[in-house]
């Protein structure tokens, strides 16, 4: 029983990280109608920006994290302005392919600047807290709390602000949004800022949970897409639910399968949902 609960904790931690990425993928699909394959490497970039703050500029943890969120959002907007916005008139498949190119560029850039080795934010071992036999790391509390906080902020933004509602409106019906007078270009930029911030947070949390490596985000891309599709792509709330399912399923699979099969579990779930219900459990768009 303790083992099972311990795995549930790991699953929730992993699910929180996946959720931050999946929300971004889902929002971008809702607004721009293409699957953003560079999202994993955007997460990696965020993680390394934070490393530059902590190790390079010896900033305090939280300042470095804040800086990394901002810098990643800036890069995301920059990529959109330089590349994606110019390709918007062509078919979505070309945007998708170009995002694969962006993914490769980002990854190579990270490898050139920071090298191919593993990195960590803080050396030394922190002692876990123990509750009735359950071991919980302080970083795990920070990850789940931080992710929940960011999701709450996003929820408040989407439900209660003028531009948040405009973002949902544009995801619903882009033509009607335009002829209602909504400034759709500003909504697009805002989407990239939010997706960039959430991707950076996911990368940083992943780095805190394990370690930093130039392909850390790329490896998480599959579960991120599985979660976004599971929840119904274009539906940020569905993405959160999907992420928890994928995170828990991946961790629980270690009870019966070798840990190396974790990505296969996400892949299998994605295939099942695509066959059984291509619009996801919350009825999103079809990829």
């Amino acid at each position: 029983m303790i083992d099972f609960l311990q795995i549930v904790i790991y699953g929730i931690v992993l699910g929180s990280i996946i959720a931050l990425g999946a929300i971004g993928v889902s929002l971008i699909f809702g607004i721009l109608r293409f699957a953003h394959f560079a999202h994993g490497d955007l997460m990696t970039l965020g993680a390394y920006f934070a490393l530059a703050g902590v190790a390079g500029m010896s900033l305090p943890m939280f300042a470095a994290f804040g800086l990394a969120l901002g810098a990643t959002a800036l890069v995301a907007v920059g990529i959109d302005r330089a590349l994606y916005s110019r390709l918007q008139q062509v078919s979505p498949i070309i945007l998708l392919i170009s995002s694969v190119g962006v993914a490769l560029m980002l990854r190579s850039l990270i490898q050139m600047i920071w090298g191919p080795d593993n990195e960590i934010y803080q050396s030394g071992i922190s002692m876990p807290w123990t509750f009735a036999g359950l071991r919980i790391q302080p970083t795990q509390v920070m990850i789940v709390g931080g992710a929940a906080g960011l999701m709450l902020l996003l929820h408040l933004f989407l439900q209660h602000t003028r531009f948040g509602k405009a973002m949902r409106a544009m995801s619903d019906n882009p033509d009607l949004a335009r002829l209602s007078g909504i400034n759709t270009q500003r909504v697009v930029i805002l989407t990239w800022i939010i997706a960039g911030v959430l991707a950076a947070a996911a990368g940083i949390f992943l780095g805190m949970d394990t370690r930093l490596h130039p392909i850390m985000g790329w490896k998480l891309l599959l579960p991120v897409f599985a979660a976004a599709i599971f929840g119904g792509i274009g539906k940020p709330y569905g993405a959160v639910a999907g992420a928890l399912v994928i995170g828990l399923a991946q961790e629980m699979s270690t009870l019966i399968l070798p840990a190396a099969y974790k990505p296969a579990v996400a892949f299998a779930l994605m295939v099942i949902i695509l066959v059984w219900r291509p619009t996801g459990i919350f009825g999103g768009k079809v990829l």
Partner: peptide, 8 residues
């Protein structure tokens, strides 16, 4: 057609 935002 498509003259409302259905999820809003």
């Amino acid at each position: 057609e498509a003259n409302v935002f259905p999820s809003l």
